[in-house]
């Protein structure tokens, strides 16, 4: 219609427009597209912060209300397993960062190697987590499904320094374990999603994608993977470490 008045236009990146197969029609340049999807990914991570935020709020409040129960509950965590898992996740974050670097420098083999390593470490994390959950099931520490307060009303010979809790405070260890399963469960769900996307990424990278200069997808997945790592960086001290002594 009447576009001539508003369209005194410098031809905006039209050359790329016709040449790059990855540029969607509504973006002017590849840079604009890349920054837009990067920004979108960060906004999505914001929603993830708030999603976990609700659970962290609950943890904070109940920990203050039922302090002895939370201390007693956390004494049943295996610190070696938590430490190992933290290390595994940090390693996987490093390999993921290296994978993004390999895609940037267009090295297909290195990309495949690092992605596979990340995938492997992701599975190791989930394995160790599953082992811990299995133990908690065996010890009757799963609230709602399989829970008994026996461990908290009696002194366990393995933890001779603990004082037994009064029965009603011992009941409150369920709060601790509810939040423990909730937080680690939702975290593990994010890991599962991440691992599935990794499989898809590896398949695509094997076919040669991402090493041709178009790597927005792998970059954004990297952000997701690091974010899941950050959540664990907070879960580890909150659930395993801070009550080790009391």
């Amino acid at each position: 219609m009447d576009s001539q008045a508003i369209a005194t236009l410098p031809e905006h990146g039209h050359a790329e427009h016709e040449h790059s197969p990855h540029l969607h029609h509504h973006f002017a340049t590849e840079d604009q597209q890349r920054e837009a999807s990067n920004f979108g990914m960060w906004l999505f991570l914001l929603t993830e912060i708030m999603f976990f935020g609700g659970m962290f709020t609950a943890y904070l409040i109940y920990r203050n209300w039922y302090y002895p129960a939370f201390v007693a509950g956390s004494h049943w965590m295996k610190i070696w397993a938590g430490t190992l898992n933290t290390t595994v996740l940090i390693c996987s974050s490093f390999t993921m960062a290296m994978a993004v670097y390999s895609a940037e420098t267009r090295k297909r083999k290195a990309l495949l190697r690092y992605l596979s390593l990340t995938l492997f470490l992701g599975f190791v994390f989930l394995g160790i987590k599953a082992y811990e959950w299995h133990n908690e099931w065996v010890e009757h520490h799963v609230p709602g499904l399989n829970f008994s307060i026996n461990d908290f009303t009696h002194v366990d010979p393995r933890y001779p320094l603990d004082k037994p809790l009064a029965p009603d405070m011992a009941e409150k260890t369920q709060s601790y374990f509810s939040l423990y399963f909730l937080l680690t469960g939702v975290h593990a769900l994010h890991m599962l999603v991440g691992v599935s996307i990794l499989l898809f990424l590896i398949f695509n990278a094997w076919k040669g994608a991402y090493t041709t200069g178009h790597m927005t997808f792998i970059e954004n997945f990297g952000l997701y993977w690091h974010f899941v790592d950050i959540i664990w960086i907070f879960l580890f001290p909150l659930l395993y470490l801070i009550s080790r002594h009391q």
Partner: peptide, 17 residues
């Protein structure tokens, strides 16, 4: 569904939360 007790007063939860 599975009876975790984050809001359940019987299990130490707080409905106000």
């Amino acid at each position: 569904v599975i009876g975790i007790g984050v809001f359940d007063p019987a299990k130490g939860g707080d409905p106000l939360l």
